[in-house]
Write a protein that binds this DNA or RNA. Structure first.
Length: 222
DNA sequence: TCAATGATTAGC
DNA sequence: CTAATCATTGAT
């Protein structure tokens, strides 16, 4: 099953409508992070939690590359960042400030540290473990890299595993036929803003942050 | 072995 | 603006 997923090929372009293709695959991710990051906007991150699946539309991403001083693996490979050197489609999760987990999609090719940080999701429904009183509260539940990991119960246990629809975490392309989505994102109408990254002290000038202009679930604007 | 720090967040 | 909180990191 996992092999089938990996062999789906490179047919998952932005506007594919083949409903048999349900997940982003390794080939689609075998591009540099600054190429993949804006393409992930409007795609759906899906998390299996027991019987239920939590879904959220990706509305904010950042790219990190091997020659980028802000990248965790800029100096060398370590035990913490080892997953960043994995094949495209590998999951890289790290703990930041001793408090929050952050989720990355490994891109490009095996042996090269290159990844996209998922910074915010527009959740379609509240996770089973959480309650929200207003629609606005739901908008903010995954509005930040640490918050989305908490909402989807993502932690270090997933680090080093692979995005896979047969597993616990995967990504569905913009094109998937998702009639149950309360927040459909029409690829033709994606208004993408490109700007500089947040929270870093080196490589600050690289314009490698992207977000959906009109999304109420973006962590910050500007 | 040890001190500094960080791709953050909530709260004052 | 700052505390929380800890694995990783790079320097002793």
């Amino acid at each position: 099953m996992i092999e089938d997923f990996l062999q789906l090929g490179d047919r998952l372009g932005d506007r594919q409508s083949d409903t048999s293709l349900t997940a982003i695959n390794r080939t689609w991710l075998a591009r540099s992070a600054p190429e993949v990051a804006p393409d992930l906007l409007g795609c759906v991150l899906a998390r299996r939690c027991g019987d239920t699946i939590i879904r959220g539309t990706i509305v904010e991403t950042e790219a990190y590359t091997a020659d980028d001083p802000a990248c965790h693996a800029y100096r060398r490979e370590t035990r913490r960042n080892a997953a960043m050197f994995g094949a495209p489609g590998t999951i890289y999760v790290y703990l930041i400030y001793g408090v929050h987990h952050c989720l990355n999609v490994v891109t490009l090719r095996e042996g090269v540290a290159d990844a996209v940080l998922i910074r915010a999701l527009q959740l379609t429904d509240p996770p089973p473990t959480q309650t929200v009183s207003t629609p606005k509260a739901l908008d903010r539940l995954a509005a930040g890299p640490g918050k989305l990991c908490r909402a989807l119960d993502i932690d270090l246990r997933l680090c080093g595993t692979t995005f896979n629809p047969e597993g616990e975490l995967w990504i569905e392309p913009r094109s998937a036929n998702r009639t149950t989505q309360p927040h459909p994102t029409n690829p033709k109408d994606l208004a993408i803003v490109q700007t500089t990254r947040i929270g870093i002290t080196r490589g600050v000038e690289r314009p490698w942050r992207w977000y959906l202009r009109d999304s109420p679930a973006v962590s910050r604007y500007g």
